[in-house]
Design a protein around this nucleic acid. Structure first.
Length: 422
RNA sequence: GUGGGUGUAGCUCAGUUUGGUAGAGCACUUGGUUGUGGCCCAGGUGGCCGUGGGUUCAAGUCCCAUCACUCACCCCA
């Protein structure tokens, strides 16, 4: 038997309804906030990710699916969406029509990590990005929209964490201060952090090892090193969130794993996912558009972990399953043949119709209708054909009524629709 | 990449200690009830016991290898 690739998964009927529902909620909400969908390719030139995510990050160093195509060009299955959105914004000069662009996209991402709870090699993200707005009010609005999204999906066990990473002006001072501390505490650091303290000292703040956490307890806070502009930007974000009643906590340890982030950064964390506590994350990346060859335009965005969201939502049994309005139980060759043409007309008229073509006993057809959770069963047998009227049974009330089939098929469809009542 | 746990029917799992006929519940199917679902009762279908090798008269069970799943480290969404 050929099995699917490690870390990949199928989304089967029964779960796909929930995925569709979440997608619909996202589309409706984002579009109400003025976002438009952008659909992007899954393969990009490897160079794009190296330049945007950062060459020293784990993603680029060891997690990307990168391979040469038949001509030898290096291409990569996208590990995240922001790089592609930015690429597209630049390539199609979307800023020329209007520098302000609000875009969302939904689709699969690929990272070759060891799979575990809430972590797959192909996973799905819902992304939203805003270009051309540097106002902190937009930062607040993005977080506002994100938390609204979670509450619409009845996800309760989530907390918004926010922080500011400063800008190229203020970050060097902070890095220097942090490096000094790391040198003095180097005996307490775990192996990884010893390495990181030289390459990317910010990451040490994010370490989960207890010894590192203790060592970092009195670490300098980036917030104390913010330049006046960054500081007032962050103040406005916080004040606006408070005004809008968005609960949040300031998390000075919050560091992003991708190099392009600046200023406001945020993460939605949950306690229901084991070690994978981030269910959404994002922030401002004011320098990225320019860095990728575009004009100087600020930007902010976030990504929601779709798979993780599915795991923590309480909507699993919300009755989203695809149940037939009507199940046709036809008995005997003649009835099956006649009913199969009706089934098509009923479906076309918007009635979810299922019919059994096996010719089995009425009892087994009723059982199947019950299993499919059909609302009504249309019984068509020799008797009915002879008498010119079929039987419509309401599966909940057990009420049965007779519907004439003497007229044209349209009449039958209309009659059935009427009988449905609610 | 490193560690722990687990692989037996479509699903959830017994059976492995101490080698000796492949099991249960659910699901599916047929009938009890000539053409009416859910409950009940009786029957039936369904397994290379993850895979490959080894030990043995004999392996689901013991040994070796390998693969997969899963959780954790790491990292992130």
């Amino acid at each position: 038997m050929i099995q699917l690739i490690r870390g990949f998964k199928d989304i089967l009927p029964g779960e796909s309804e929930l995925w569709q529902h979440i997608e619909t909620v996202a589309r409706n909400l984002f579009e109400d906030f003025g976002f438009s969908e952008i659909r992007l390719p899954i393969l990009e030139r490897t160079e794009l990710f190296k330049r945007s995510i950062g060459i020293d990050t784990d993603i680029v160093e060891k997690e990307m699916y990168t391979f040469p195509d038949r001509k030898g060009d290096l291409i990569t299955l996208r590990p995240e969406a922001t790089a592609s959105v930015v690429r597209s914004y630049i390539q199609h000069k979307l800023y020329a029509a209007d520098p302000v662009q609000k875009l969302y996209t939904i689709g699969p991402m690929f990272r070759r990590e060891r799979p575990q709870k809430g972590r797959y090699r192909q996973f799905y993200q819902i992304n939203a990005e805003v270009f051309g707005v540097d106002s902190p009010l937009m930062d607040a609005q993005m977080i506002f929209m994100l938390t609204a999204f979670f509450s619409r999906l009845c996800v309760t066990d989530v907390t918004a964490h926010i922080n500011s990473l400063g800008c190229p002006e203020c970050r060097p001072d902070f890095k220097a201060a942090l490096s000094d501390l790391l040198k003095s505490k180097k005996d307490q650091l775990c192996e990884n952090c010893t390495r990181r303290s030289k390459k990317n000292p910010l990451r040490v703040l994010d370490c989960k090892a207890t010894s590192c956490r203790e060592a970092m307890a009195d670490a300098p806070s980036i917030i104390d090193y913010l330049c006046p502009d960054c500081a007032s930007h962050f103040e406005t974000v916080k004040a606006t969130l408070e005004k809008q009643n968005v609960p949040f906590i300031i998390n000075k340890q919050l560091v992003r794993g991708l190099d392009y982030y600046t200023r406001t950064t945020f993460e939605i964390q949950t306690g229901s996912l084991g070690a994978q506590n981030a269910v959404a994350g994002g922030g401002r990346y004011d320098g990225l558009v320019k860095a990728l060859g575009g004009p100087e335009q600020p930007a902010i965005g976030f990504a929601i972990g779709f798979d993780r969201l599915v795991e923590i939502t309480d909507l699993k049994d919300a009755g989203l399953e695809n149940r037939p309005d009507i199940f046709i139980a036809a008995l005997g060759e003649q009835s099956i043949s006649a009913a199969s043409t009706w089934a098509g007309d009923l479906s076309l008229s918007g009635i979810k119709t299922e019919m059994d073509m096996s010719g089995r006993s009425l009892k087994s057809l009723m059982k199947r209708a019950d299993r499919l959770n059909a609302r009504h069963v249309l019984i068509v047998g020799e008797n009915e054909i002879k008498e010119g009227a079929v039987t419509l049974r309401n599966m909940e009330t057990k009420e049965q009524l007779s519907i004439s089939i003497k007229g044209p098929i349209d009449d039958l469809v209309t009659n059935i629709k009427e009988k449905f009542g609610s």
